[in-house]
Design a protein around this nucleic acid. Structure first.
Lengths: 172, 172
DNA sequence: TGTTCCATGTAAACTGTTACATGATTAT
DNA sequence: ATAATCATGTAACAGTTTACATGGAACA
């Protein structure tokens, strides 16, 4: 996941590892964050795999490693981006791909969000069924966490609806 | 985290590792799940630490390890439960503690949920500020993920409000 | 007789954080 | 002077999943 976020950042231009960390703090940190302890090794791995390239720069006496995305790196990123959005019950992982969806054709973006919605709806229906068939095993707090799930997934559904509307309406 | 969930399950009575996995699938799996590969080693660790005790049982030709919570295990669980609910931006970790909040005095439960709300509000305000001071660096999809965060945290706030109302109203 | 469920366990791999180490520049 | 920020990196640890291995019971 981290590797693709770093590739995505580099799609906007040359950047150092330090800058990527700052970039994440300002944008993706609500749903995905990483420490230097994972960023730097990941950059080395990406460089070894020729998905990014590095040039050393001295700027204001400070040494920097400026990274750029290569052609195969861009291809790998786009391949990842256009694949179905996977749904996680315990993390808003879907936001990672959607964050970069301006790189995707509108049609494909809308299509993938719709397909994602189907997965969410499946889980939502299971939870609703669970709420109905609750035979008194769960206490009030347990039921409240179940309600949390139902309302959270419902929120995701409407958020996706709005997003698709905006895409179709040419707002995005 | 997993160790406390297992302790929490055992507060309701004797159970095998396999049963705990099933229990999780039916209750906490929306916000926390674990595989056998982490459940069994964790149970061994808890047994070694004398927080749980085991007795071997043969039932219908099948061998089972039935675990019970010890006094020090119950104490450790209650200590963990009454501590402030920690807030994670990337996972609904708060639900884990709240799931077991019927073990806490009503006053304490409400107090901890309120304190949790203050943390959520802090992050919410930061996001709102971020949305205001958005200088055009972000495109429509990036802004949509920001909005997701704002609306998600707002939802958590109202969910907590409802929960506190129910506690005060004697519904829980 | 094969498949599914019950039941436990381990090893390898993956992903990530924390804490440390280095060293320069800039602001107080 | 000294603290903060810029900038990179590594080692130890923690938590977890996946894949495998074992074996009995129930069912079709």
């Amino acid at each position: 996941m981290l590797e693709f976020i770093l590739l995505g950042f580099l799609k906007c231009g040359e950047m150092s590892g330090y800058q990527m960390k700052q970039c994440m703090a300002e944008s993706t940190s609500n749903f995905f964050d990483a420490s230097f302890g994972s960023i730097y090794p990941t950059l080395k791995k990406l460089e070894k795999g020729k998905l990014i390239s590095m040039r050393g720069v001295v700027e204001g006496g400070k040494f920097k490693k400026m990274y750029s995305i290569t052609e195969s790196g861009a291809a790998a990123f786009m391949q990842w981006l256009q694949e179905p959005i996977d749904f996680s019950k315990i993390r808003p992982d879907h936001l990672v791909k959607i964050f970069f969806f301006s790189f995707l054709p509108k049609e494909k973006a809308a299509e993938n969000i719709r397909y994602f919605q189907r997965k969410v709806e499946e889980v939502l229906n299971k939870l609703r069924h669970q709420e109905k068939n609750e035979g008194g095993n769960a206490d009030g707090f347990m039921l409240a966490t179940l309600r949390f799930g139902i309302e959270y997934y419902s929120f995701i559904m409407t958020w996706c609806d709005d997003l698709i509307k905006k895409i179709k309406g040419g707002e995005l």
